[in-house]
Amino acid sequence: MSVSIDIAGLRQTGVPPARAESRAWERVVAVPSPLAELGMALHALSEPGHHPGLQGWVTGVTARLDPHLADRMCEADFLWRTTFSDLFLPCAGLPGGALPGGTLAEELDLLDKLSDEQFVDAALEFTCALPYGTPVPGPLADEGLRRRSLELAAARGPQQVRFTERLLADPPRTRAWLRQFLQDCDEAFFAETWARLRHQLAADTRHKTDLLRRKGLAEALAAVSPAVTLDETAARITVDKLGDGRTATGDGGLLLVPTSLGWPHLMVLHRYGWQPVLHYPVGSPELTAPPTVEQLALRMTALSHPVRMRLCRHLARSAYTTGELAQVHGMTAPEISRHLSVLKKAGLITTRRRGRYVLHQLDVTVVARLGSDFLEGILR
């Protein structure tokens, strides 16, 4: 599973071969976005469990947040709680390869330039299961989709119904409400946060721009995340995610937008007709490359077997030979070998030779990254 971005449209026609590489990626731009970072700030405040490293910041902001603003934050939290609405990157929906604004006010002006149809479709995307990657009429034009939007909103409670009814009845008024809410959040807590973060994000975009210029797109994407790869022959970027999607740069470009508050979320805006965006975390505590989705599936499958769980309990404490494990577990050496092979293929154990013996041991660091509950269970 992955999200792919067709970048064939980035290649220029009639470019001399000697200059093709430098011209091919001239519409790939790394740029910070205050509005996108405000969206991540709202997400972290609504779902602090996703961001344990921000616990201190969340606690500090929440403690001084005006109760009325906190209530308003709940009115449309589906735009940022579960995931991240494309409304926080409105430049991607505008023609001509628009870029994020340098200030929040400039980006809110870009949000105002979206059509009512774009605004409503993006606002209802996650909660009303609207089509994302295909060109179909939205709920403003399609009465069936309007009814479906209201039905699905009803399943999420009266507050969502009220917001959806208001959105469908009067998009400009709802847009004005959202703009005022975001401005109030800026005044209450975000302006101070952005003043602290914008220098780090600007430095990261300068670094990515330098990599694009000196070493090319593949190096720049590798610096964005190990989960992002480039196939230059196929003119395709692949983002390893637990989900499927595809988009293309077409006549537009590709935006690389960093976030300081967003780790571990690596998001791809791949809405039909919008400019693709890679929204990626910087300054994360992740010291090693994250596993691919295939590796993650292998590891979860390997740990789901009760025998292998018991093996992990022993291997977490010390290194053992196959014969020792067979004796402890009352199994044959070939049976133990088969289970060890599964664990090794999943990257969960290490082996080393000591004389004529081969010792196996659990890689506790890898297991810890999968989940502390499992690690605590086998160490208990």
Rank of each mutant, 00 (worst) to 15 (best):
R19A: 15
G14P: 08
G14Q: 05
I7N: 00
G9W: 02
E37M: 04
R19S: 06
A44P: 03
S2Y: 14
P34D: 09
I5T: 03
Q12K: 11
G39P: 05
L35N: 02
A41I: 02
L45R: 03
P32W: 01
V15G: 05
I7S: 03
V31G: 08
V28D: 05
E21C: 00
V15S: 07
L38V: 03
I7C: 07
H43T: 12
A44F: 04
S4R: 15
R11P: 01
S33T: 08
I5R: 06
V31A: 08
S33P: 13
D6R: 06
A41K: 13
A8C: 07
A36Q: 10
R23C: 09
V3C: 03
P32D: 11
A8R: 15
R27Q: 13
P16K: 13
A24R: 08
L35M: 04
V3E: 11
T13E: 14
V31W: 11
L35F: 13
L38Y: 01
A44Q: 11
G9K: 00
R27Y: 05
R19D: 15
T13C: 13
R27N: 02
R23M: 10
G9C: 02
M40F: 07
P16Q: 11
A24H: 09
W25E: 00
P34K: 05
R11S: 03
M40V: 13
H43G: 14
I5D: 01
G9A: 06
A30C: 10
R23D: 13
M40E: 05
R27C: 01
H43K: 15
W25G: 00
A41W: 01
